[in-house]
Structures are given as structure tokens and as C-alpha cells.
């Protein structure tokens, strides 16, 4: 297992964001699917050891609390977290240096792939949301991580970059890596994920595969609404709107 999450709980004061969560990820794309506030981002932050949690998380057999683990993981947060007063070229150089990488070839390839050349000397604070997101993804890929953690990574991306990111995800799997990926967009989850964990109120309420959903003659949306108990709520709301 590349990632194993065991009995993880995350609390913000009295609020339980993640409740005794357990799941594992191997050489695959594992998707956390859930409504807003289901605990997806908190789970990913706990995997990154960026927030306090109870339980255990192991990456490649090592506790995620160990510093060395950070070299195995690439993380794209929900909101790009970048040095806004640096240019992308300065930031990329900085991250390569701090990670102890000596070669900028992969960085240059990724700059090219994400069509960022014309923005490389512009302060990040002045870039559009889409371009910031591209820089954020690029930074997470620089050290060829074994495990990629993508929190709503397709947000703000144009069609071409979305396609490129999907290809990057494919090659990550071909090279033996793993991806944990959170989204609330069903179509993307259906297309790119091998396994899906549907979350509600901090827990995984169903683990399934897109193939199994299709075999059952259903759509992921139907399954999602039914297992989260939101179908009834949606019907009520629609009724209310119609009246």
C-alpha cells in the first residue's frame, strides 16, 4: 500500500470534520467524492500532516509524521498556496533548491506543458486563478512524487490543461505511483478514478469502482445521492422550486 489511513479523526474545536476514517491506496487513482463540508480537504490535509489528527497515516510504510515522507508526496491544495510576490520562475527555482534538486529539465518540460512561458517573469499575485493553479500543480510535480494528493485540482483549469493533467495522472499510475484525488464533480471522478470513496459527514459511506456502477446500470450521481441520503433532500428542494 502506498497510503494507509487508519482510524483518523480530525476535530476543529467541537466540530468533527473527519470521523474515524480508514482507507488505503495502492497503484491507482483513489477518489474522495463528497458534498461540501464532507471532510475531503481535511482528510487530505491530515495525510499531509498539516493539521492535528488522531489515528495513524502511513505513506510507503512510514508514518506521515516523519519528515522524510515529504519527499514522497506532492500536494495540490484547494486554493493555490504560493509566494505571491515571487515570479513563477523564481518560485520554481526556490522549490527545486529547497528540495535539493539540481536539474531544471523536468521543470522546463512542465512549464512548456502548462503553457506558462509568458507568465514566468510576472509576479504570482498578478496571475489569474487558472495560471496560479497551473503553477501550484507544477510545484507539486517537480520532485516526481510517488504519491500525488490533489484537492479539487481541476478547479479553474482550461480544457487543454485539464487534458494534460489527466495524462500526467495516467503516467503517474503507469510509473507505479498513486493518486488521492478529491472532487465533487461526478464526470471527472467517473473518468479518471479506479476506486471511489463516497464521503459524508467525515466518514466514507461507500467504496466502489466506476466499472461496477456502470455494470449496475446506474450513474455515479444516482449512487452518490442514494448512499449519502441526499436524494430525498434533492427531491424536496426541486419540489419547492417548482412550486
Amino acid at each position: 500500500m502506498l497510503l494507509s489511513v487508519n482510524n483518523v479523526t480530525v476535530k476543529y474545536g467541537e466540530v468533527i470534520a473527519v470521523n474515524n476514517l480508514t482507507f488505503g491506496v495502492g497503484n491507482e487513482v483513489y477518489c474522495l467524492l463528497g458534498p461540501n463540508g464532507a471532510g475531503k480537504s481535511s482528510t487530505l490535509k491530515a495525510i499531509m500532516n498539516m493539521i492535528n489528527f488522531s489515528g495513524t497515516i502511513e505513506i510507503n510504510g512510514m508514518s506521515n509524521r516523519r519528515k522524510e515522507v515529504k519527499n514522497l508526496v506532492g500536494y495540490v491544495p484547494e486554493q493555490p498556496a504560493l509566494y505571491e510576490h515571487m515570479t513563477p520562475s523564481e518560485l520554481i527555482g526556490f522549490v527545486l533548491s529547497v528540495r535539493g534538486l539540481k536539474n531544471a529539465d523536468r521543470a522546463n518540460k512542465l512549464v512548456n506543458a502548462f503553457s506558462l512561458e509568458q507568465y514566468m517573469n510576472t509576479p504570482i499575485a498578478q496571475l489569474s486563478m487558472g495560471n496560479r493553479q497551473k503553477v501550484s500543480i507544477l510545484i507539486a510535480l517537480l520532485h516526481s512524487p510517488k504519491l500525488l494528493i490533489l484537492d479539487e485540482a481541476f478547479n479553474s483549469l482550461d480544457i487543454v490543461t485539464t487534458r494534460i493533467l489527466k495524462e500526467i495522472m495516467n503516467s503517474q499510475i503507469k510509473e507505479g505511483g498513486g493518486i488521492v484525488f478529491s472532487t465533487h464533480i461526478m464526470e471527472i471522478a467517473e473518468k479518471v478514478c479506479n476506486r471511489i470513496g463516497i464521503m459524508r459527514a467525515g466518514s466514507i459511506v461507500l467504496e466502489t469502482e466506476p466499472g461496477k456502477v456502470r455494470e449496475a446500470g446506474k450513474t455515479l450521481e444516482d449512487v452518490f445521492l442514494s448512499v449519502t441520503g441526499l436524494d430525498e433532500q434533492v427531491r424536496e428542494i426541486v419540489k419547492g422550486l417548482e412550486s
Binding site: 509566494y83 510576490h85 515571487m86 515570479t87 520562475s89 523564481e90 520554481i92 527555482g93 526556490f94 527545486l96 533548491s97 529547497v98 535539493g100 534538486l101 539540481k102 536539474n103 531544471a104 521543470a107 522546463n108 512561458e117 509568458q118 507568465y119 514566468m120 517573469n121 510576472t122 499575485a125 498578478q126 496571475l127 489569474s128 495560471n131
Partner: peptide
């Protein structure tokens, strides 16, 4: 309001030692 500007210019990705890289980043910032 702030406007995004861009012009195609050659760029260079500089690599240094970790602490020196931080000092350079902090000085620029």
C-alpha cells in the same frame, strides 16, 4: 482593480543551496 499582464520574455530557473535559496527569496520579497 488589478490587471493581469504578460509578455513573452526569456526566463531562467536558478538553483542554489537550500538556506541560501531561502535568503535570496526573503531578500527579494
Amino acid at each position: 482593480p488589478r490587471i493581469e499582464s504578460s509578455k513573452i520574455e526569456p526566463y531562467k530557473i536558478g538553483i542554489r543551496g537550500p538556506v541560501f535559496s531561502f535568503i535570496s527569496k526573503d531578500f527579494k520579497t
